[in-house]
C-alpha cells in the first residue's frame, strides 16, 4: 500500500464516550488493531462510555440504533420479537462471535494484555459514584482530563 512520505502513526489515544455497542466496538477494534500493528494504544472511557469498564454494566451493553441494524438484516421469521433491542443485540453478538470478535470483557483483556493502557474518567467516576473497585481489573487508573492529555503524549487522539 502506498504510504508516500508520511510519518507512520505510532500511538493512538481513543476516547470512548458512549455505551451503545455500535459506538463501543469501533474504538475497541481500533485500539486492538493499533497494538497488533506494533503501535501504542491508550483507551479513555468517559461519560456513558464509563459503562464499558464498569463491572455490573459491561456485560449488559446493547445496540441502540435498532432501526439501522434492522435495515441490514433479514426480517425475523414470525412476529416481531417483543424486545427488539435485545433481539438485535443478540444477533450482532452472534455475528461478532462468528467473526472472532470477542465480547467486551474479553476484548478489554486482550487490549490490556497487548500493552494497551485503559483509563476511566475522574469526573464521570465522581458523578456516577464509582471507585476503582466498581471497575474491571483492566482499568489502570481513574484520571482527570489533564492526565488524559499527559498519557496521550505523542498520540493521535480519536474521539468516539
Amino acid at each position: 500500500m502506498e504510504n508516500n512520505n508520511y510519518e507512520p502513526v505510532k500511538k493512538v489515544s481513543i476516547i470512548i464516550s458512549k455505551n451503545s455497542l455500535e459506538n463501543v466496538y469501533p474504538g475497541l477494534i481500533m485500539a486492538n488493531g493499533a497494538l497488533m500493528e506494533g503501535m501504542d494504544a491508550v483507551l479513555f472511557f468517559t461519560f456513558f462510555g464509563t459503562d464499558v469498564v464498569t463491572k455490573n454494566r459491561m456485560d449488559k451493553l446493547q445496540i441502540k440504533d435498532v432501526n439501522n441494524f434492522m435495515s441490514h438484516m433479514p426480517a425475523p421469521n414470525g412476529p416481531m420479537p417483543e424486545n427488539l433491542t435485545q433481539f438485535v443485540t443478540d444477533q450482532i453478538m452472534a455475528q461478532f462471535d462468528s467473526m472472532d470478535i470477542p465480547p467486551v470483557g474479553e476484548f478489554l483483556e486482550m487490549i490490556h494484555d497487548g500493552g494497551g493502557q485503559i483509563f476511566a474518567c475522574k469526573a464521570m467516576a465522581d458523578m456516577f459514584h464509582l471507585t476503582k473497585d466498581d471497575l474491571c481489573d483492566e482499568v489502570d487508573d481513574i484520571i482527570s482530563v489533564g492526565k488524559m492529555y499527559e498519557v496521550s503524549a505523542g498520540a493521535q487522539i480519536i474521539y468516539t
Partner: peptide, 18 residues
C-alpha cells in the same frame, strides 16, 4: 490467523504472544 484466532488455535495467551 489474526491475533485472537492465533491465541485460540495455539492455546498461547495473548500476553504471552506479545
Amino acid at each position: 490467523p489474526s491475533l485472537r484466532k492465533l491465541s485460540k488455535a495455539s492455546g498461547v495467551p495473548t500476553k504471552e504472544l506479545y
